[in-house]
Design a binder for these strands. Structure first.
Lengths: 245, 245
DNA sequence: TGTACATCAGTGAACGCGCGTTCACTGATGTAC
DNA sequence: TGTACATCAGTGAACGCGCGTTCACTGATGTAC
């Protein structure tokens, strides 16, 4: 409902001073909310705390945000978009025909952003916030940017004849075919079932690996060479995706 | 879901009535805490709420638990142990020499438990609880049961000469070798670097796949054949681990 | 076996804190004529 | 161009709620002699 200015700072064309001030205040609210996310977590995100930081009485923020859940949604979209922008930028830096290189760039961008923004990453990919249900209308688009980019890359490689399927791919259960066909249609893909199913695994595996590192599952000192561990994992995943690495 | 007993209940030999009553009360506290975890999430876990459910005044629970964090630790250990028990039971049902079968059983057990106990799964593998740091002394052992079982299975397959490495395994960066050597020593393994590194990826990938499903990342209707999707993923992961499937 | 004492479980009041949300209100900023 | 009115931002008080933790206390249960 409130949305002067996309994710946060893409302030549109300057309108009236009041509208600009309003957009600025909303951007400030999102910025302050981000900080609270980092220190206290999503479940403890509080409109009163944001109001305090904004230097305003607590009821004043209701001029900008209907309630706590709407602030959470703003933060969710903000984070999805920043991650999506980071991934897009990283992928676009690699030559269009270097499919494996683009995949590696995507994976590294996800990990880098996650390590830089662990709390926001946790909001997106950690346990759901109890009592909060993201409104699909607002979060679906930004929330699917990374996976679309991933399967898009695999699809391009397939069309270019650059995919190397390992000998004897795992059989895709027939019950899955309907789901995969729907995905193919919705995203305009051409890859066969085996490739798409493997792509889904690569997608979840990438985030699984990143989540374990960000959420501290590795323990304090099991892995000290984490960059190298991730690079190895990425290389193996590229191979699962059918991309030579 | 209620199961006064389970992990917390390994009541030793019956001691005095008072000690038995005390153990029972602690088990009740853990059981009630589990329920609150499911409805309100870890961040909102409250000693007062547990006391209410226990039918006791709020200060009374301090007889059994030093503070809120200690209750969280109890719940963490309780969940890790239940998951570990489920995995052990599932793996043990498969013939010792059927390494791939044991791996599949392990993966299915993790997923089944996670789907049955999403909130507790989220406590273990979701975003960290803000302000809470798990005491390594109490949580390390139960927290490593699954991964130990996983690499143990791979190691047994290796020793039996049953591992099939795909042609041209990904090169393990040399900086990783020290970490891998330490793990090998600590767990008494014999598998070479490539196998161990792939095992780590399989580990994180398994939980990544399960987390996406449990945490709702798949969206409402992208995948309707979720069992089949998981089976396919498991089959591919078995291959990455070097186990024929 | 019976009594004196120690230990423990649970009570109730209190401290100080934070939260989301509503509501009537004051002033300042914009808009229409 | 100036004035009357509408819109908006922000105030301050209030409602009703929940939380963790401490503390002095009452009774009941156990233990030592």
């Amino acid at each position: 409902m409130t949305d002067p200015g996309a994710s946060t700072d893409t302030i549109p064309t300057k309108r009236t001073p009041r509208e600009r001030a309003r957009a600025q205040t909303i951007a400030d609210i999102v910025r302050l909310g981000r900080a609270h996310l980092a220190t206290d977590g999503a479940a403890a995100l509080s409109l009163r705390a944001v109001a305090r930081d904004l230097g305003v009485v607590s009821s004043a923020v209701y001029r900008y945000v209907a309630n706590r859940d709407e602030l959470l949604t703003l933060l969710l979209v903000d984070a999805y978009d920043e991650l999506g922008d980071a991934v897009d930028a990283a992928v676009d830096e690699v030559h269009e025909g270097d499919f494996a290189g683009r995949f590696l760039a995507l994976g590294r961008a996800v990990r880098e952003w996650a390590l830089k923004e662990p709390a926001r990453y946790g909001l997106l990919f950690g346990s759901p916030v109890p009592g909060y249900q993201a409104p699909a209308g607002q979060t679906m688009m930004p929330g699917t940017r990374v996976v679309f980019r991933l399967v898009g890359t695999i699809n391009s490689a397939y069309r270019a004849g650059a995919l190397i399927q390992e000998a004897g791919p795992a059989v895709v259960p027939s019950a899955l075919s309907a789901d995969l066909a729907a995905i193919r249609t919705e995203l305009g893909l051409e890859v066969p079932d085996e490739v798409l199913a493997n792509g889904a695994l690569v997608w979840t595996s990438l985030f699984g690996t990143v989540s374990f590192e960000v959420f501290g599952q590795y323990g304090a000192d099991t892995f000290s060479a984490r960059d190298e561990l991730f690079e190895h994992h990425l290389a193996v995943l590229a191979r699962v995706a059918g991309l030579r690495s």
